[in-house]
Every structure is written in structure tokens, then in C-alpha cells.
Nucleic acid binder design. Sequence first.
DNA 1: GCAATTTCGTACCGTTTCGTACATTTTTAA
DNA 2: TTAAAAATGTACGAAACGGTACGAAATTGC
Lengths: 201, 201
Amino acid sequence: MSEIKRKRGRPTSIDTHSATEAMVELFRAKGYAAVSLDDLSDVTGLSRPSLYRSFGNKLSMYINAMDAFGVQVAKTAVPKLLADGPLEEALSDFFDAMLDIYYRDSEVTPGCLVFGTAPSSSDEALVQARLKFGIDQVDALMRGRFEKASPNGDEHVIETAMHIASNTLIAFSARAKSGSSRHQLSRMGAQSAQAISTLLS
Amino acid sequence: MSEIKRKRGRPTSIDTHSATEAMVELFRAKGYAAVSLDDLSDVTGLSRPSLYRSFGNKLSMYINAMDAFGVQVAKTAVPKLLADGPLEEALSDFFDAMLDIYYRDSEVTPGCLVFGTAPSSSDEALVQARLKFGIDQVDALMRGRFEKASPNGDEHVIETAMHIASNTLIAFSARAKSGSSRHQLSRMGAQSAQAISTLLS
DNA sequence: GCAATTTCGTACCGTTTCGTACATTTTTAA
DNA sequence: TTAAAAATGTACGAAACGGTACGAAATTGC
């Protein structure tokens, strides 16, 4: 591939990826408006001017965090849903994988960056667009998986199943933040998966 | 009853109820952290010191708004769910009544104050408590209604139906904020009501 | 070594924030 | 009419905010 073209001046010492990760964790714990640039500077270890140089202003840091969060979901959870095998198991595994993300380490429950924090910052067009994209993606993913599992299924039934599945996931975030245990939500996901499975059969 | 005991000094000219209403609208449009006391002063027409005297600090204004919002829901939407008649119709009417609240006037879509804005402010214990209370209330309400409609129903099935119904409502808020039309969500609510109705029969 | 180039953090700016002290206004009691 | 009592808004203070100018530091090309 292309060699690393050493640039002329002082080389960067900034790890953009780990900084983004830290910002994701902070934003989904406290939301957008409650996070200050000093907070972001603290958790990333980067000075405020460095943050501006690397990520632009606060809003674009948040957008960047949302996109990174989406990539994480796409990499770790979505494959569980698309896996071969019984639909009920795939759905249940997907829900559990999402709970792995929502609960992170046990200490605190950050929930979902998109479904949890974007709704209260949706006056910004870019944020609202990400929220819409997230919801649309989940809906489309569910619909595709259900159509695969039930090729001749009634379109109306598939749409109902799609909404039940997506709404379960969306509600996870609020429920996790409200204090529900991981185990409770895992159970809820399994129930939802079972109901959808029988609905489609 | 007791006569109005005219107090000694200058009488209040503050309408607490209409001020609370204005604060509800502002908070659910912009969330907690993004709202300043000057914003609250603007929408209520009250000076900042008056706000402090009447409602305490910003957090207690938000708590007060959440409680008032809960009362509004209990008065206007909950009776639809508890009404006699077919379960499917009661559920569907309840969802529509909640959408009346979530969409308010057509211009902007404020969504749900509790499910929409509380999750991103839940590091405050009082807020998290309200969020938990809201979710628990909806769950309990649904369970009670379903047990009434299906007295000998399997407990496991009732719990599943309860979660589908509650999650539909919780997801309404995020979906409304993401740009879904009222009509789309009304359709979704009707689908959900139908699925639950057949699940319980 | 020396100049050109790029990155980095200190230090600063103007604005906005929450919260309150205090003088003014309005009312009742005597 | 005058004093006490309660409510109200102006005006202020201290802190936090987002954002940036600018000099110091680090590297490459010559």
C-alpha cells in the first residue's frame, strides 16, 4: 500500500480514536448540552485548542461521537441479528449484544447515545438527522431479517413485527437509564423475540 | 370551607399554573440542560428572582414540570385506556391521546417530557426517580388493563403484552422527535393494539 | 546548523450562566 | 396617616462557558 508520507512539521501526538471513544462515553452519560469543553478536555486528555483542531466545535464532536457509536453497533450487534439460524435466537442475541453496549461496565448505565440523548437535542438539524437515520436503520434491518425468515409472510404482519422489535430496542435505553437491571431487560428482549417469532410463523 | 385569609403584605400577581405550563413546553422542546433561567423567564413572563421565589432552583422547576406533565397525562389519556369496551379500541384511543400530547400543535414536535428529556438528565437522582416512576406507572397500567380484559390469561403472555404496549409508547417520543408524522405513529399504535389484542385472545 | 513548517498549550476575550442583595412598590393593621 | 409586612424587579457578582490569538515546541528540508 502507500507508504507513510512523513509530513514536514511537528508530528501529531493525538490519538483520534481513543479520544472519540472517551467522548462517546461522556456524551451518552450526560447528554449533549450538559457536557462542557472542559469536561471533554478532561476525559480525552487533550487541551481545548487541540479538540478544536481535531474535531471542530462542540456540535461536530457530538456528531462525530454519534457516528462512531453507530459503527460500534454495526460491528458488534448487527451481525448477531443477521446470523443464520432460528430467528428467535438471532433476535435475542442481538438484543443482548445491544445491552452489552448500553450497560458497558456495571458501575454506571450510560444507555444509548442516539436514542437516549439525541431526542433532547433534536433542534439541531444534524442531530435530528442522525436520530432519524438510526431509527430508520433499525427498522430496515428488522424488516429485512423478518422477510428473510418469512419470505411469504404477510406484509402487514411483518411491519407489525418490525415495530415491536424496533420499539423494544428504543425503549431499552430509557429503561436502562431508569434503573432496570441488565437481567430484566435481557428477559424482556427474549420475550419480545419469542412473541415476534410466533407472530411470523 | 375556609375563607380566604388575606395576608398582610402585597398580594401575589403570579399565576403559578400558567407559568408551570409554559415551563413544561420549554423543557420538553429543549431538554433540561439546554434551558437557561433567562429562557424560563422569557416564556413565563416572570423575572428570574420571581422564578426562584416561586419554584426554587432550575432543577426543582424541571421536577415541577415533570409532575405537572404526569398529571396532564393522567387526566387526558389514561381514562381512554381504562374505558370499558373492546381492549383494542381502548389501547388505540390511549395511544392517540398520547400523540395529541406529544404533537401538541403541528408546528413543532415537543415529544414526551419524561421519556424524551429525562434519560439525558438522569444523573440527578430526583430526575431518575421520576423517569422510573413514569415507566413503572405505564407498565402497571397496562398490566392492570390486560388482566381485566383477559382474567384467566397466562401471566407470561400478559407480561409480554404489557412490554409491547409500554415500549410502543416509550418509542413514540423518540420517533416523533425524529420526524415521524402523527399519522404514521397513529398507525403504529393501532397495529400494536391489534397485535396485543390477538395475543391475549 | 538554520530556516521553513506544523503542532501544541498558555493565556486571554467576550458572553452567558446561576444566584442574590437591596431598594421599591403594594398592601394590611392600627 | 403611619408603620409593618410581603412581593417585585433592577442591578450586581462570581463563576463557567465556547472559542481563539499567539508564542513555544518539535520536526523536516537544505
